[in-house]
Write a protein that binds this DNA or RNA. Structure first.
Length: 1027
RNA sequence: GGGCGAUUAGCUCAGUUGGUUAGAGCGCUACGUUGACAUCGUAGAGGUCACAGAUUCGAAUUCUGUAUCGCCCACCA
């Protein structure tokens, strides 16, 4: 006997093991089949997967499983990402917390070793999560962005770009994390608003001429940076700049609503005052700049020029701006434009260097204080205002970010970006939903060079060796020697002049890892670069590096380009765009044909899920509570085309298993008292031994309960089928001879198969899940199974019914399998025992539904008339149920029913009379056009179908209840009639709306009127009878 | 500041090209357990489709504006 619940806890692991041990997920080069390939977006090994990964990987598995069943050689390539800075930061933070050591204390090798240990641990955890979700990856091929295969690809790519002169060394202002001592990318910086001050300084003018100001006022929120100032800028044409601002304000004023007007008017007024007060002065300064006049930078006691540059905004502050090219991104741009020196005042650890010896060794806050005090002592300090300051913080170390000038390696993006834009504009790569194209194209359109070096120890080390020489000849000489060490497909060299220091840098790039050339290059006096590559560099190669490139492997030939990529929108630029351009550069072919951008899961408060907020959900917790199929089905139902989806989350009380809504308050507390059982449970924040002593509550979402119930429904419907397959004999099914309900089922199967197949191709996951849910529950279970009950009890009908129902269940299992692989696989094996051969033309079902063929949409089974007729049957059943409910007739009672209907409906309903019993507790007394009401009658009309259902209430009548029902019905009908009448009496509607719409309205009004009349008659009769 | 998106029942969401009475699940109410399933069944209540205009015979749906929320990008000496 099959248990009445699907025990996922024990079944799932067994099933997964069978898949894996039978190689069900493996894909091999197979010229007889078309390939279908997905590469997994490699999860970071920083930590465990959350529900966002759960969603993305569910979708990829649905695609992979569907295509596999459709006869493709389906490869889902698994792997993980080393995630450079994120992983190193996690391990460094632990090192600091647990052992109070920094990475410099233990050294590069030891740190990297520790990170590998971390990686091994989390990679295992991640793979465990994916496997429990049922992900049908080809696990034999598991890759890691730092493994030898990927490393080879990275080296080959870097070498190629280097040789093409697409890689260059340049200074660049980077976001410097003084704790980790590395540059971090923009997306790893978050801004926080803090209280600070806005300081006004005066810089003396050197030898002012008569009529010239003797000082220039500037302002800053970061006083210490003045030590690195190399100019003060003033706008080259302040009058024109002010005009432009003014006309912009006036334009806004013209368009503005009442609310903004006063504010804008005030701004224009202020601007006019400024013009009067300051324009002459600014123009004088501009002339002085043109004249090459200099200022004395206080404290540093250095002469700096006054320059004319449009970065200075005459409408702001004093109209003058200090320029610190080495410590501010905008000033850096000015510095480049104006050929200003760039003076770095910081050490890598964030203390001041010896540029201005008096401040050497001070931290930034100390230096800030000192600079302000020293300027005040010299009477050069003006006002100090309070102001909110946006402060950049490093995501990883939570310490302040300093803009810092450093040597970095860049990839020139001009050509590469263009190629990736073209691939999308000409639709070789399609992005779904299409609205995301714009962001991709806009970002690439900027063609900003890609800084690829990171001052980290965890990653692909940059394969460049360098040395600096004072003479170009010397550099050339060594370069020649270096090149002669190997062939030009293994070693490449380039010389870059450093004008500032009048030196020459020699850069040598080696293509192969651990090549004997390394030692030889080093013997020439060259030193290897300390930096590693941006983690996205190796990720960008993922679709081809995982297939063995640069080797021309069979896999690469067969599986590349891949088919679809599913990912989240925040990495469309960072990752997707770069995969496209690298694929085109390395293989001259796009990496994938379709990109699906899935929605982001937010919690019930509309916030992104994250571990640091406490609202993150581990898919494993959901699987433990609801099962893997429920997790997957729930996530699939969530995947609409919107950009965000909400999923309220709860704590599951470990004591009473109740789900407790998360609030912003409780989700960050170490312990929470359960409102249901009042026992205390702990959360991820528990740190003290005392807190940890309470059982920990997993974070889940009750939304998966619906899906769990659906799994149960499917399980039990299948159980019913299985219990009734005794004596099953596989026989061909003669469709033409089947009764209506069987042909209805076949027709519906054809439609559903078609809709599901198309939906998956179009990434309409929520829709597909909805279609299957509705069909399985409301049609297969609620109607077909109910109808099958009497037929299975009838020896004459049993055989054919068994054949049809087995076929129906078989098809349903196949269609559901990609979404709910475990329960379908389990049922499949039970079904295989009782009905090993099944179908319209019975064929042997294989051992695994996972490897079964996808159902064909059998269009010839679609029959509009049958579906319409069956809908009539469903309506009639519904009408009887409504009458029963309004009369509170006990379920055990059987009610006599008559149905007035057309001849054709009669022909349909006649053979289905037997099913009224199990579906509506009714016995059909008479059918057809001539049917009369019962003496004590409860009628219900179905006007759209021209059907009237009558229930004999002789034994049951509750006059009051019946009057209430009829009056309510009458009210509804009258309301509709009023609406229709007013619509039809509208001359405009009648004359302008299409004739068929008007005709439909008229017909519908007529129906309603006759319905009203008959209800009124019924009410009258009932009143007479009761009085 | 620029871009993208959302706003429909108490909650989470559907709603195709404008056209009968705007749907589903959860929750709620009432009734119901001798066999597929109480993780169930049947019925019911519940909506000024964010707001204001415009187009149209007709708008949840098209257009304009407003408000609120979210995300991405840029930026504020």
């Amino acid at each position: 006997m099959i248990p009445n619940r699907f025990d996922h806890a024990t079944a799932a692991e067994e099933i997964a093991n069978k898949w894996y041990s039978n190689g069900c997920c493996d894909a091999n080069v197979n010229p007889d089949k078309k390939p279908y390939t997905i590469v997994i977006p490699p999860p970071n090994v920083t930590g465990a997967l959350h529900l966002g990964h759960g969603l993305n990987n569910t979708l990829q598995d649905i695609l992979t499983r569907t295509k596999r069943m459709q006869g493709y050689e389906a490869l889902w390539m698994p792997g993980t990402d080393h995630a450079g800075i994120a992983t190193q930061a996690v391990v460094e933070r632990r090192l600091k917390e647990q052992e109070n050591l920094t990475r410099h204390d233990i050294g590069r090798e030891a740190l990297v070793e520790r990170i590998w240990a971390w990686k091994d641990q989390y990679e295992q955890r991640i793979i465990g999560q994916l496997k429990r979700m049922g992900c049908s990856c080809d696990w034999r091929r598991l890759r890691f962005t730092l493994d030898p295969m990927c490393a080879t690809a990275v080296r080959a790519t870097f070498f190629d770009l280097f040789k093409k002169d697409l890689i260059y060394r340049g200074k660049r202002l980077v976001n410097w994390d003084t704790f980790l001592q590395t540059a971090v990318s923009n997306d790893e910086v978050e801004n926080v608003t803090k209280k600070g001050h806005f300081y006004h300084f005066r810089y003396p003018v050197i030898d002012p001429k008569p009529g010239e100001p003797d000082h220039v006022e500037i302002a800053t929120t970061r006083p210490e940076t003045m030590l690195g100032d190399t100019a003060v800028a003033v706008h080259p044409d302040p009058a024109a700049a002010l005009d432009k601002v003014e006309s912009e304000l006036k334009r806004k004023l013209a368009e503005a609503g009442e609310k903004e007007r006063p504010e804008l008017e005030k701004q224009i007024e202020v601007l006019a005052e400024r013009r009067t007060a300051m324009l002459p002065q600014l123009e004088r300064l501009r002339d002085m700049a043109a004249d090459g006049r200099k200022l004395m930078l206080p404290l540093a006691e250095r002469e700096i020029p006054l320059v004319a540059d449009q970065w200075a905004k005459p409408e702001l502050g004093s109209g003058c701006v200090k320029i610190t090219p080495a410590h501010d991104p905008n000033d850096y741009e000015v510095g480049l434009r104006q050929s200003l020196p760039m003076i770095n005042i910081l050490n890598p650890d964030g203390t001041l260097n010896g540029t201005v010896p008096a401040y050497e060794g001070l931290t930034i806050p100390q230096a800030r204080k000192q600079v302000v005090a020293d300027l005040e002592a010299r009477d050069l300090l003006g006002d100090v205002e309070d102001r909110d300051i946006e402060m950049p913080l490093s995501d990883r170390s939570k310490t302040a970010i300093e803009p810092y000038l450093a040597d970095q390696w860049f990839v020139a993006m001009d050509q590469l970006a263009q190629s990736a834009m073209d691939a999308v504009t000409d639709d070789r790569v399609q992005i779904f939903p299409t609205r995301y194209r714009k962001g991709y194209l806009d970002w690439l359109g900027e063609k900003r060079d890609w800084p690829v070096s990171r001052q980290l120890w965890w990653g692909h080390r940059i394969p460049i060796w360098s040395a600096t020489y004072e003479s170009e000849n010397k550099a050339r000489e060594i370069a020649t020697k270096a090149k002669s060490l190997g062939t030009n497909d293994l070693i490449s060299a380039t010389i870059q002049a450093d004008e500032e220091n009048a030196t020459f840098h020699l850069f040598v790039c080696l293509r192969e890892e651990e090549s004997p050339l390394e030692a030889k290059v080093e013997a020439l006096g060259l030193v290897r670069d300390e930096d590693v590559l941006d983690t996205w560099f190796s990720s960008a190669l993922w679709p081809h590096s995982t297939l063995g490139w640069p080797e021309q492997t069979d896999e690469l030939e067969y599986f590349y380009p891949t088919s679809s990529l599913s990912t989240s929108r925040d990495i469309i630029t960072l990752w997707v765009a770069r995969m496209v351009l690298m694929g085109l550069n390395n293989i001259h072919e796009i990496p994938f044909q379709e990109v699906f951008i899935h929605p982001t899961i937010l919690d019930g408060n509309g916030e992104r899920m994250s571990k640091s907020k406490g609202n993150g959900v581990d898919p494993i917790d959901v699987i433990d509570k609801f099962g893997p199929d429920a997790l997957r089905f729930g996530l699939t139902r969530l995947t609409t085309e919107t950009q965000d989806v909400r999923l309220p989350v709860q704590f599951e009380c470990p004591h009473c298993e109740k789900l407790i809504d998360q609030t912003k308050k409780n989700r960050t507390s170490p312990t929470v008292p359960c409102p249901a059982c009042s026992k205390v449970f702990s959360t991820q924040w528990a740190e003290t031994e005392e807190d940890k002593a309470h059982a920990k509550a997993p974070v889940v979402s009750e939304k998966f309960e619906v899906s769990r119930n659906f799994v149960n429904k499917l399980w039990n419907a299948s159980r019913f089928v299985l219990m009734n397959l005794e004596g099953y004999e596989a026989k061909p099914i003669d469709v033409a001879s089947l009764p209506v309900e069987d042909r209805w089922l076949l027709s519906r199967l054809a439609t559903v198969t078609d809709e599901v197949t198309r939906g998956i191709d179009e990434f309409k996951f929520a829709e597909v899940a909805g279609i299957l849910y509705d069909f399985a529950w409301n049609e297969f279970c609620s109607f077909y199974v109910e109808i099958a009950k009497p037929r299975l009890a009838d020896d004459a009908l049993r055989g054919v019914t068994q054949n049809v129902i087995a076929h129906g269940l078989d098809t349903l299992l196949r269609l559901l399998h990609p979404i709910m692989p475990f329960v379908t696989e389990s049922i499949w094996s039970y079904l295989g025992e009782l009905a090993p051969s099944r179908g319209l033309k019975p064929t042997a079902a294989g051992e695994f539904v996972m490897l079964a063929s996808w159902p064909e949409c059998q269009r010839e089974h679609y029959d509009q008339d049958i579906e319409r007729q069956f809908a009539e049957f469903q309506e009639v059943i519904g009408a009887v149920r409504k009458i029963r409910a309004s009369q509170s007739i006990a379920p055990k009672e059987t009610v006599p029913v008559s149905v007035r209907c057309s001849d054709s409906s009669q022909a349909l309903l006649e053979p289905m009379k037997a099913y009224f019993g199990s579906l509506a507790g009714a016995e059909v007394m008479s059918l057809g056009p001539a049917v009369q009401p019962f003496a004590t009658d409860a009628p219900l009309a179905i006007p759209a179908m021209d059907i009237e259902v009558h229930v004999d209430l002789e034994k049951f009548i509750d006059v009051e209840a019946e009057l209430t029902r009829l009056e309510k019905l009458l009210g509804q009908v009258v309301k509709q009639i009023t609406g229709k009448e007013s619509k039809l009496s509208n001359e405009n509607f009648v004359s302008r709306a299409p004739a068929d719409v008007v005709e439909k309205e008229r017909a519908s009004l007529n129906d309603l009127v006759s319905q009203r009349d008959s209800i009124e008659v019924d009410i009258k009769k009932l009143r007479e009878k009761s009085s």
